[in-house]
């Protein structure tokens, strides 16, 4: 069993090493995830010992010598290993579990935590920051965190039940209609990890992911300031054509690009879409080609998503439009 533990660890490391972003509870990057990871290894080791014990005893019961078997054959075995031992182990484990649970309590002075509102929507994440001046800054599918500072995520849903799960950071917490659940997380080191909706929410549940970007506090502040600013005015002729297409073909009915006439709030805010790490809640890489593909073919790429397919553009128009969106950084 110990071998299996090591194997699991090796696989976890391979997971991290083999690709750019990790989405794993075995690679903790947050305080809660670290506590749970320790808990996991303690329980796994203990469980492995118990499993081996049962297997060895069963083997002795079947293949052992007559005298060995006689020793196992009484109610004493049941009372000792079937009652006394479990009671002892379970009591210890339960207490340990409670202590880990208590460690999740929000410490005193919680009001000073930074708060980020995350709303689960079919099938993406609306993320709203409130900056120092009290302005609400909306973005999507990416949660930026200052390393080392506790941040409280206010979890709500716009429709069905979702569950926010960034396994490197912390355990999951559901988003339930009519309720606001609060999850306090503290990133322990800078880096990008991935998360995903964990509660089946129908249709494109598999395509409801997000990135967690943990940054040094100064970097985070800078990012937030940039995110709060409206989109830069466009000058390049291609981008201007793209912007015009965006505004004239109704994209603004659902999407907002602050600083332009597009103020829709049904779909994700696109003011700085070009700076995000993915498209369509982790479905596609963020490139101009991917944007173009999604505009034309999104029901194939992410079936049942709420955006209609726009097949009316010529290739050239599509190029302009996607270049414009890609330029929104």
């Amino acid at each position: 069993m110990r071998v299996l533990n090591i194997l699991a660890g090796a696989i976890a490391v391979a997971t991290l090493g083999g690709c750019s972003t990790s989405q794993s509870a075995l690679v903790p990057r947050g305080e809660q995830a670290e506590r749970i990871n320790t808990l996991f290894w303690v329980m796994t080791s203990g469980g492995a010992v118990i499993l081996v014990l049962v297997c060895v005893l069963a083997a002795i019961a079947i293949f052992g010598s007559a005298s060995l078997r006689r020793r196992l054959s009484g109610e004493a075995l049941v009372k000792g290993l079937g009652i006394a031992l479990p009671v002892l182990v379970l009591t210890l484990l339960l207490t340990y579990g409670f202590l880990v649970l208590r460690a999740g309590a929000v410490p005193e002075g919680t009001q000073t935590n930074m708060r980020i509102a995350v709303s689960g929507e079919l099938w993406w994440w609306r993320v709203t920051y409130t900056d120092a001046s009290g302005t609400r800054v909306e973005t999507a599918n990416e949660i930026h965190l200052p390393v080392g500072r506790p941040v409280t995520l206010e979890l709500t849903t716009a429709d069905v039940i979702h569950s926010l799960w960034a396994p490197n950071l912390a355990g999951k917490l559901d988003m339930i209609p009519g309720r606001t659940n609060e999850l306090t997380v503290t990133a322990t080191e800078a880096g990008v990890t991935r998360g995903q909706c964990a509660e089946y929410c129908g249709g494109a549940h598999a395509f409801m992911s997000f990135h967690v970007v943990a940054q040094p506090p100064e970097e985070f502040e800078a990012w937030l300031a940039q995110e709060a600013s409206p989109a830069d005015p466009v000058e390049d002729p291609q981008l201007l054509r793209g912007q015009e297409l965006f505004l004239n073909t109704g994209c603004g009915g659902c999407h907002a690009v602050r600083g332009t006439a597009a103020t829709g709030s049904i779909g994700p805010d696109l003011t700085h879409v070009g700076s995000r790490r993915s498209l369509a809640a982790g479905t596609l890489p963020n490139t101009a080609e991917a944007i173009a593909a999604f505009i034309v073919n999104n029901q194939h790429i992410k079936p049942e998503n709420k955006m209609p397919e726009y097949a009316l553009f010529s290739d050239e128009e599509l190029g302009d439009l996607s270049a414009y969106l890609e330029s929104l950084r």
Binding site: G47, L90, V100, S163, K172
Partner: peptide
């Protein structure tokens, strides 16, 4: 059955520990 059930029972105890279930649940 004995092997599989004991293993399943042990993971059952694991997920009964609340904080671990925060990670394991729905995975």
């Amino acid at each position: 059955f004995l092997f599989i059930f004991v293993l399943g029972g042990l993971t059952g105890v694991m997920v009964a520990v609340v904080p671990f279930d925060f990670q394991a649940h729905d995975s």
